[in-house]
Design a protein around this nucleic acid. Structure first.
Lengths: 203, 203
DNA sequence: CCGACCATGTAATATGTTACATGATTGT
DNA sequence: ACAATCATGTAACATATTACATGGTCGG
């Protein structure tokens, strides 16, 4: 289950609460694995039962209790084993592409919204990825620095930075590609509506 | 539920059996929405109960019965309504990117396999998409020609071809990008192993 | 006659979403 | 005091995977 390894992987870079993890799944981590709190909290309990993580309660203010989780040696071993497994790919699922191709009956307003949403989504994503990548390359990302510090040899200290640069830069280029794609589609649609003004209100 | 619309959308281009749909989910359709027979057969029954599709039994040979499904007017209306809804995006989930960034402890063999599998996967995908795109642009794809024939006006006949060209060409470019990415990552890894031959057997 | 493929199903399990539910803290 | 955010949970439901299960057809 990838959610388990998203949690364990993140905890392998330092301790954190369930809520920290929830926020992480919204921002950084969610670029590769998103999950809601309804999934995360129960899963943390399972991982703790299995001895892959431990937790201790921390009191905030006078009453509010939060649990701060840390990865165990067994947890580190589990991440390491999972990371060395052969890649597996889930079936392709892209509901918006599906909507685009089966929405071919001529609702140009819906098509325009489709492309504009796509554009907006990937422009935001590009900005987020760029900002994150900058924080990584300028060595300001605390958790990644921790991973580097944990590496046992000089050579292995290259890896944490390199894999993240590759992964995030790859997704950044993908975001740029999606932006270009959406702009070209919008240009086609502009041209279509110019050539066929009578269809512009079709649904 | 996108699976419902993958089924309905496909049936909107012509009748077909559950098994046809299963194969379709493996090849063409699966580029945007994959599903297994265990999901498809039960779902067809639900869609039929709801009056969105109908079926008639066809006997193959002397005994083998298959059910051939057709979309109803209610089904067409449902697809049309769904296609005009605002886009929704699920959380990002990319288990292989996750494996790459949390596999940063230095198993270069696993990293190499990761990149090679990625390369292989997207080279196959590129070839499939190219072949499909060619069949579409050379007007040899029967179901798409059916969609074009069904369009009520000359202007609207452009849409089925256009949206598919956009969707498949977009994914083709993405496949090319992933291929470039994997090659660059492999080049980095080659360089790393050249610089640090002692780490090449690490795990 | 045998293997590859056609054809359809169910059951158990795993994973993920949405809604419901509660209460504390912090800054204004 | 009030709002935003911190912090954690459960229940019901929806969706998807894996394994189990059966039998027919067609070509060599």
């Amino acid at each position: 289950m990838s959610l388990d390894y998203a949690i364990l992987g993140w905890l392998s870079t330092g301790p954190g609460s369930g809520y920290d993890l929830v926020r992480q799944m919204d921002v950084g981590l969610s670029w590769f694995w998103g999950a809601s709190h309804a999934q995360i909290y129960p899963r943390l309990k399972v991982l703790e039962e299995r001895g892959l993580i431990t937790s201790e309660p921390v009191t905030v203010g006078t009453k509010l209790e939060k649990r701060v989780y840390s990865i165990t040696e067994a947890g580190r071993a589990a991440v390491s084993a999972w990371a060395s497994e052969p890649p597996t790919y889930p079936p392709n699922r892209d509901s918006e592409r599906l909507r685009l191709i089966f929405g071919d009956h001529g609702d140009t307003k819906a098509m325009r919204r489709h492309f504009e949403t796509h554009l907006d989504r990937f422009e935001k994503r590009k900005a987020n990825l760029q900002e994150f990548l900058d924080s990584v390359t300028s060595r300001k990302h605390q958790r990644i620095e921790q991973r580097i510090a944990d590496a046992p040899t000089e050579a292995l200290k290259e890896i944490p930075l390199a894999v993240r640069t590759m992964a995030y830069a790859g997704d950044l280029r993908r975001a740029e590609l999606e932006i270009d794609w959406a702009r070209e589609c919008l240009a086609w649609l502009d041209d279509f509506e110019r050539r066929h003004p009578e269809e512009s209100r079709a649904g």
